[in-house]
């Protein structure tokens, strides 16, 4: 067993959300520096408005503007903020009941320390300078001082188009680990070797090795070094560009059954026009210059024809 290789992995996308008619009212309000709640069937006002009434299940249709000052219902102290939170210094999250609302709303409260927060304190909205109809149009909440300039907080009158969509970035960072068995394969690549492993039960050779033979449910163990030649079992010609693609189309993506392996690996076919690639074509690995090698399959640029005669269909038919 070798120790697993790890590497950072990022999952990042700016999601485009259409918001529907109810949230549109709320988010349009935020853009226009107004807090808009919805009237529930039982008469209460909820901020933000739920899209559907909790009792009648009908879509909310009546909207009510509420005050921008409210009372802290409960709070917790964030001593170590994480990326994306409204403030990058310690702050409080608070559930706040805005004047005229019957349900508390969550947001960040900007105060210097936990000593400066208490349940029951009065807070008000601090609007972001640039607003587009998202919850972060409220930059945060701040203590509502009696002598604050109320005029500065006066809601603007909105006459822009209603907000119908928002963009919410989701950017997550992970530490990815390969299994111990896969790590054997990747470390082998760093040495210019192709290492498979044999299942102790069915004796099939897996490349890359597997934490569990998918037929027998036990880890592959015995290392088998494989030659750098093999047979194209099947393939497709990729003509389509896609987000995150690292290779320019058109290119051939093929299953290559390395000689001595019982399962094909997927890789690119090089040095031959795409329309001349064939099932059964014999190929060999094309390695990058040694100084560029790492623990990655990218050490191999792809596979190119060896010039040998094609393999008989029967010799690889069971690998399709």
């Amino acid at each position: 067993m070798t120790s697993p290789l790890t590497a950072p992995m990022r999952v990042s996308f700016d999601y485009t959300r259409s918001v529907g008619p109810v949230l549109s009212k709320f988010l349009t309000g935020l853009r226009d520096q107004r807090l808009i709640g919805g009237r529930l069937a039982d008469g209460r006002v909820a901020v933000p408005p739920p899209e559907y009434d909790p009792q009648t299940h009908l879509a909310l249709t009546e909207f009510v503007e509420v005050g921008q000052t409210g009372t802290v219902v409960t709070w917790s102290w964030v001593s170590e903020p994480v990326p994306g939170q409204p403030l990058d210094r310690p702050f409080a999250y608070a559930l706040v009941l805005f004047d005229g609302s019957d349900t508390p709303m969550l947001h960040a409260l900007d105060v210097p320390s936990a000593d400066a927060v208490r349940t029951g304190m009065r807070v008000r909205v601090r609007w972001a300078e640039e607003r587009s109809g998202v919850i972060t149009d409220i930059a945060c909440l701040e203590p509502a001082d009696a002598d604050a300039d109320v005029a500065a907080q006066a809601p603007a009158t909105g006459d822009g188009e209603a907000v119908t969509g928002i963009i919410t970035p989701v950017d997550l960072h992970y530490t990815y680990a390969a299994s111990s068995e896969e790590s054997t394969f990747f470390r082998g690549l760093a040495e210019g070797r192709l290492i498979g492993q044999r299942c102790p039960t069915c004796h099939k050779v897996y490349v890359p090795p597997r934490g569990a033979c998918p037929v027998d449910g036990v880890a592959t163990i015995e290392d088998v070094e494989l030659p750098h030649t093999g047979t194209v079992t099947t393939f497709c010609i990729v003509n389509v560009p896609f987000l995150g693609q690292r290779i320019d189309p058109p290119y051939v993506s093929a299953y290559v059954l390395l000689d001595g392996a019982d399962i094909a690996i997927q890789h690119l076919i090089l040095d031959i026009p795409a329309d001349e690639v064939r099932m059964g074509m014999r190929v060999e690995a094309v390695w990058r210059p040694r100084e560029e090698w790492g623990t990655t399959i990218e050490n191999i640029n792809g596979f190119r024809p060896t010039g040998e005669p094609d393999a008989d269909f029967a010799s690889f038919a069971q690998h399709l």
Binding site: M9, T234, C236, F242, S253, T296
Partner: peptide, 29 residues
């Protein structure tokens, strides 16, 4: 969908280009 199905994973190289690229070789077979 192409992005969500092909988030880059360390050590390996996505070559098949989404679901179509995944299934096309099997259609050829």
């Amino acid at each position: 969908a192409m992005w969500a199905l092909s988030v880059p994973v360390p050590f390996v190289m996505p070559v098949h280009a989404g679901a179509g690229g995944y299934f096309a070789p099997h259609v050829r077979s």
